[in-house]
Write a protein that binds this DNA or RNA. Structure first.
Lengths: 247, 247
DNA sequence: ACAAAAGTGTTGATCCTACACCCATGG
DNA sequence: CCATGGGTGTAGGATCAACACTTTTGT
């Protein structure tokens, strides 16, 4: 990373959501020389848009492109940043001593959240300051650097609100999925439980799902149908806005 | 303004909304040495929170404190800032030549919108780079610097969405107001027209208005009643969230 | 008296909620 | 054949949209 030619004072943090085993998960990096974890993040090159750089961070960690990514909040507390997570990295020569000055700035950070299909992230890639990267279920997030707990919590609320305007299943589930899977996703995001019959009726009434005719076999119960999003109808609907009315 | 001890690369722009004569208006500053106008804005001192600085800008221009103020978007395009509006100011010694370097940075800007009672802003105060400050109705915004048109448009959409979660009349209208005035505010923000009887029923059903018993006289028609927000019920309602369901 | 705008209620349509039984699959 | 979870319909209540006449005020 070249620390000149970066926009000073501003960083990006990405809350990358996936859904697996009926849990929302976020991609976290374990800092080297420390027991603390962090959100994937980075800085803004002077010749790039902030949105581009957020997409770039997402791509670098997941290999994915064209992902739903949305800016949700600027975290600008005067005392939010410090160098306590950087110092061990410099001591151990993970980062050059010359980079201390960069990290010793006051940073505001702009939070983005991304919605990705869990299974499409087969090999997430850690950065040079981390020794691993992993999906963590939201209920058991480990200790995080700086205000990253707060950033995740904020993203979670933003996602909950997004659900009223966008059928997020399109972004978080695989191409084909069952109605109970979709419902479980909604219940997890909304932190509530929903009536099976009413949920199905409501979702189908949006007119954006297609029944593939296929069924998911393999479990000791009636095989649920597999659905896909009808790309054409979906695009139309997003275009003119939803009014899904959960929440 | 001391240009050292500011957070570099990041500025604040405030879209200050007022409501007067059935129009939404925003406070704009006319740049000296130019026909263009700008949003009230500023920079972030290193020892202040970004939110604090936004409130400070609002206070400096309007004299008001404790105003509803909300961050709504970071504008981060690589090419959004330039110095074309600064150069004439330096040529005419409105700004010192030494400040050019500061303004010649790339800036991202964080947009805030504020909701104020129009009549409470009796003497808005221009800054040193402007020769006047005025309320402009949204339909006839003059030519603006940089991407300020886009910022206003974004704020307007954010306000429209806010209407579903917060009864913004509390912030935009005087203490006592009539039902038709409140309706007109809603119609303006939503850019639609609403049925009088249904509107009244819906608003009253929120249980946050009190009839003062007084009436507004002076017009050649039946005198409308004056209402106030019931502070206690209002606070309770904001606390546990609305579901106003306009939009 | 007249013009202008405020106040008021009902009806039908739609949407939401609550709820229980049968069916397909794997073991 | 049994356990598990998926699929399905209806009725009552709440909410929403549409709609017109009467009242009050100033001129």
């Amino acid at each position: 990373m070249l620390l000149h030619n970066l926009l000073p004072g501003l960083s990006i943090d990405c809350v990358i959501f996936g859904f697996h085993q009926n849990e929302l998960r976020v991609l976290l990096l374990k800092m080297k020389q420390s027991e603390r974890w962090s959100l994937p993040g980075g800085f803004i090159r002077l010749d790039r848009d902030v949105d581009e750089e957020a997409a770039h961070i997402l791509h670098t960690r997941t290999g994915l492109d064209n992902i739903f990514l949305k800016q949700f909040h600027l975290f600008g507390k005067q005392n939010r940043s410090n160098t306590s997570h950087i110092e061990p990295l410099i001591e151990q020569n993970v980062l050059p001593a010359s980079s201390f000055q960069w990290f010793d700035q006051r940073f505001a950070t702009i939070g983005y959240y991304a919605l990705v299909e869990y299974a499409s992230v087969t090999q997430p890639i850690a950065d040079t300051t981390s020794d691993c990267i992993a999906w963590c279920p939201l209920p058991d997030i480990p200790s995080l650097i700086l205000d990253h707990h707060q950033i995740i919590e904020h993203a979670r609320v933003a996602l909950k609100e997004e659900l009223n305007f966008r059928p997020v299943g399109r972004n978080l589930l695989p191409d084909e999925f069952t109605m109970p899977e979709l419902q479980s996703l909604y219940e997890t995001i909304l932190e509530t439980s929903l009536d099976r019959r009413n949920f199905r009726r409501k979702i189908l009434s949006l007119g954006i799902l297609k029944d593939t005719g296929k069924k998911r076999l393999g479990a000791a119960n009636k095989a649920p149908s597999l659905y896909t999003f009808d790309e054409v109808k979906y695009a139309e609907a997003v275009e003119k806005g939803f009014k899904s009315g959960f929440l």
